[in-house]
């Protein structure tokens, strides 16, 4: 499966617009190339479409007009299977939810690895064990999401995405909802994989500027339906 993953070498939008039934054109006519190899903090006033922008960027929402271009290809018109090689290199983490409720935490984490045959069941188990030990939830891995805290659910959801080793990571408010210790552990781990270079580009939202400076993130402003880059790192 690994060979089916196609590396993202460029990503951008060409006159992309997106709207909901109840709010037409929340994002309007955006043409933007996101420079890779950097961390980007998506900023803007509440309700101006930061999460929506991330959803389009993560391939969860299809633009209502215009194009999303990956390696020069218009992925907007691709079928699920055509987009799959790019999707496997494009990680997305939810602000909340996203775990399958009828599977245990371990089964949730193992599902993409086993489904795409990225490793054997034994290797997947060892990998999950290593993550669980590192983040201190080894005794909870056989629990279903309903029986663990919201923070742990979110952590597992984020870790499941990271297990894919995507080079382009889109995260919607990844550091909220945790206790200080878990948040620090997650930041530390993200820094490691950032420095190791398997995650090359990171686009995220957060209300806490500490995390922005932690990754020396530049600003990607989403405001009044537009998105533009501010190269200067956030304070």
């Amino acid at each position: 499966m690994m060979e089916r993953k196609r590396k993202i070498e460029s990503l951008g939008f060409d006159r992309m617009s997106f709207g909901y039934e109840w709010r037409k054109e929340l994002l309007h006519d955006i043409t933007l190339q996101i420079p890779l190899g950097k961390a980007w903090h998506v900023e803007g006033p509440s309700g101006h479409g930061q999460t929506t922008f991330l959803r389009v960027l993560g391939g969860l929402s299809t633009p209502t007009s215009g194009a999303m271009l990956i390696n020069g290809e218009n992925v907007t018109e691709m079928s699920f299977d055509e987009f799959l090689p790019y999707r496997l290199d494009l990680g997305y983490t939810f602000q909340s939810g996203g775990l399958l409720s009828n599977r245990t935490l371990a089964e949730n984490m193992a599902l993409p690895l086993l489904y795409h045959k990225l490793c054997s069941p034994e290797e997947a188990e060892a990998k999950i064990r290593a993550y669980a030990e590192r983040f201190g939830f080894l005794n909870m891995v056989d629990q279903r999401p309903a029986f663990v805290s919201a923070g742990l659910r979110k952590l597992v959801s984020v870790l499941r995405t990271l297990m894919f080793e995507p080079s382009f990571l889109v995260m919607d408010d990844p550091f909220s909802g945790f206790d200080q210790q878990t948040a620090q552990a997650l930041v530390k781990y993200l820094r490691e994989i950032w420095e190791d270079g398997f995650v090359k580009t990171m686009v995220f939202t957060t209300a806490d500027n500490t995390y922005v400076s932690e990754f020396q993130a530049s600003i990607l402003r989403v405001e009044n339906g537009k998105a533009y880059l501010e190269e200067k790192a956030a304070a």
Partner: peptide
């Protein structure tokens, strides 16, 4: 329906798992 509300279907999509087949 509950899976949709809890974003489980979207989670499958981002994992590259086609909801129609899974």
């Amino acid at each position: 329906g509950t899976m949709r509300v809890n974003r489980e279907i979207e989670a499958l999509e981002i994992m590259g798992i086609q909801p129609l087949s899974y």
